Computed example of a mutant assay.
Amino acid sequence: MSDTTAPGILPSQSIDELIAKGAILSDKPFDKDQVQPASLDLRLGARAWRVRASFLPGRGRKVTERIADVAMHELDLTKGAVLERGCVYIAELQEHLKLPPGVSARANPKSSTGRVDVFVRLLSDAGPAFDDVAEGYHGPIYIEIAPQTFSVLVRQGTRLNQLRLKRGQPSRLRIESVGVDLTDGIAGFRARRHAPVVDLDREDGHDPSDYWEPLIPRDGQLLLDPGEFYILASKEAVEIPVMEAAEMTPIDPSVGEFRVHYAGFFDPGFGTDEAHGKGSRGVLEVRSHETPFILEDGQTVARLVYEPLTARPARLYGDLGSHYQRQGLKLSKHFRAWGN
């Protein structure tokens, strides 16, 4: 590979090299826009299963063995299928891994997946944890899908999560706090219950008023109701330098009984002037837990953890026409702009 042997997140050209060398394989040819600046989009395969419960395969066991224990019925994704809210599914992914020694991976939901409150996690054979793929792993990968608020329509090829590959154990460069913006005007959206199905391959094709209720804070405060799902925006602009990548981590309970941001990866160039994104905000997917909670303008709700890349990426965030560069408060790409 062309970059150094220092620990770090692999950039786009290193992912391209892994694909060329057969370390990342696919049932179908890779899409031209599948490789991001520091991550790889993953695509649903042909089959999914409605399962009775979430699970981990455990050491020495394959995911397919556990599916046989808990499967209720099989879905054909080549024809499209609706995944019902409140249910759990396991789906094949088109991609397979033959990671070389020293290279491991971590998965996270794509931004658009988190913004419609679809909880997804990666599984690998014998994997003791969700989302983390062991160094040198050879085998298939799967995705657990659990729609929380909206039922969703998916198909073979739908992209719900992404894979970040890394060499060694990258050091944490710094950790930054992220506050919430609750200034005047529409400061967020709350998901409506019993909304129509969201087609996850249909961009700008849904009327947001059918799915979301706008929120106007009072005196810089917003009351979070338990079990409800909210879209808010960060107080600060977020900027990811071109030689770094970041992950937004859920806040610990010491600052509030809520969870923020299912989709955690921020690629190099997000929010930078160099990539024409200066001033971009982080969008926060927020769910309150057991008790009502009052958020205040500027309150810390999440943290960004920065890690180094092994080399400057050949492409930056926004080069592929991302929906979320230069964003402020913004719903997922599936919805038309509010008021249009």
Rank of each mutant, 00 (worst) to 15 (best):
V178N: 06
L163I: 05
R159C: 03
P250M: 14
P253I: 12
D204S: 03
W212E: 09
L215Q: 13
A233C: 13
E213Y: 02
V255I: 13
D201R: 10
E176Y: 00
R192C: 13
A195I: 01
D252E: 05
V197M: 07
G205C: 12
R159V: 04
P170T: 06
A246G: 07
D204P: 00
G185W: 02
G227Q: 02
L200F: 09
P208T: 03
S209K: 04
W212V: 06
R174A: 05
I175M: 06
M248N: 05
A233F: 04
A195C: 08
T249K: 02
I175G: 05
S234T: 15
A246I: 00
A245F: 02
D199N: 15
S171G: 04
V255H: 05
A191F: 09
E236Q: 13
S209V: 12
G227T: 02
D219I: 01
L222Q: 09
E203W: 08
R202M: 07
T249C: 00
R159F: 03
D199V: 04
S234H: 12
G205P: 07
P217N: 09
L232P: 01
T158E: 00
G179Q: 10
R159A: 11
E176N: 07
H206K: 11
R172N: 06
F229I: 05
Y230D: 03
A246L: 01
G185E: 11
L165M: 11
G179K: 11
L222T: 07
N161M: 15
Y211D: 07
G227R: 08
D204T: 13
V198F: 04
P250Y: 14
D184F: 02
